[in-house]
């Protein structure tokens, strides 16, 4: 295989890792709380700003800022679930959509109001590792490895701990879980908190690669939805595979076809998969 093809595979995998990273939280919230969180991209935007400001004001390295961002975003997720989502948890889906879309608009415009439309980015010393002619960007590699680690940690948490098992029970059958004495509202808050903490971590990891501005979430959220649906709505492994597929498709179609057709190509593949497997790749029909 030529170096160009190997480089394309690397680029595709690393991009897929980023897509998986931003989709994990969405998948978890979608699978457990059964809410379509349209404000997902805005939480990504907020966490990018958070680690940007930590870097700018206190000189905290974006990766170190994870220790602050993750607990803070867990708390934010918990609070959002308690204050905004819980009252509408049994409401018709349309009302839930209004609530999360509204939240996204409020957060976007609040960011525009407080931080203006400027593009903000950090310059870190992390650079590219060259490996016999192949270029591997360190921040992208970190994002990829972190996505794998976070999925592994979540799988262990969901399979081994009581809270994890309770969350899974809730995702499978809400009423039965309630009858078994599981405090479902507490579990919802934990699940939403973890989901937002995941996207918070993604923001801190992405700030050395991208840049923060009020509508940055919109750039990623559409892909995150595609990845989640492709992966099968509530499967973490599905989100990883879905992210990697889209990353690879973009890298190859962008190089061999044309860069402006790459989005079109992955949407065609997306539609085909939905036609053939409506429940997604790893979903249970």
């Amino acid at each position: 295989m030529s170096t160009a093809v190997l480089q394309l595979i690397i680029n595709g995998l690393l991009l897929g890792g980023i897509y998986a990273l931003i989709s994990i939280g969405l998948t978890l919230i979608f699978g457990v709380v059964e809410i379509i969180n349209f404000a997902h991209g805005e939480f990504l935007m907020l966490s990018m700003y958070a680690s940007y400001w930590l870097f700018q004001l206190y000189g905290v390295d974006p990766y170190v800022s994870l220790f602050v961002v993750i607990p803070a975003f867990f708390a934010i997720g918990w609070a959002v679930q308690r204050i905004i989502i819980q009252p509408i948890i049994h409401a018709p889906p349309l009302n839930q959509i209004f609530a999360t879309v509204g939240m996204s608009l409020v957060l976007q415009n609040a960011a525009l109001f407080f931080w203006k439309a400027d593009y903000r980015t950090v310059r870190t010393a992390y650079s590219t590792v060259s490996f016999s002619g192949l270029m591997i960007s360190t921040p992208r590699l970190v994002a990829f490895v972190f996505a794998l680690a976070i999925i592994a940690a979540l799988l262990i948490f969901l399979k081994r701990t009581y809270t994890g098992k309770a969350i899974r029970a809730l995702a499978q059958e809400k009423r039965a879980a309630m009858l078994m004495g599981i405090d479902i509202y507490r579990m919802y808050k934990i699940a939403f908190g973890i989901g937002i903490a995941c996207v918070g971590a993604a923001g801190a990891i992405l700030i050395p690669i991208y840049y923060a501005f009020p509508t940055v979430g919109a750039m990623f959220v559409l892909i995150a939805f595609v990845v989640v649906i492709l992966g099968g709505y509530n499967s973490l492994v599905g989100a990883l595979i879905g992210g990697l597929i889209i990353g690879m498709v973009e890298a190859f179609s962008g190089f061999f076809l044309s860069p402006h057709l790459k989005e079109a190509v992955y949407f065609v593949i997306f539609i085909l998969i939905l036609l053939l497997r409506p429940a997604g790749l790893f979903g249970r029909a």
Binding site: A4, N11, I18, M219, F220, E250, S258, P259, H260, K262
Partner: peptide
Amino acid sequence: TDSYSHKTVDLSPVVMRFKA
């Protein structure tokens, strides 16, 4: 002569084509 959407989150295909 390569065009792309300014909303994209990845321009490595353009970079790779130019490198080639």
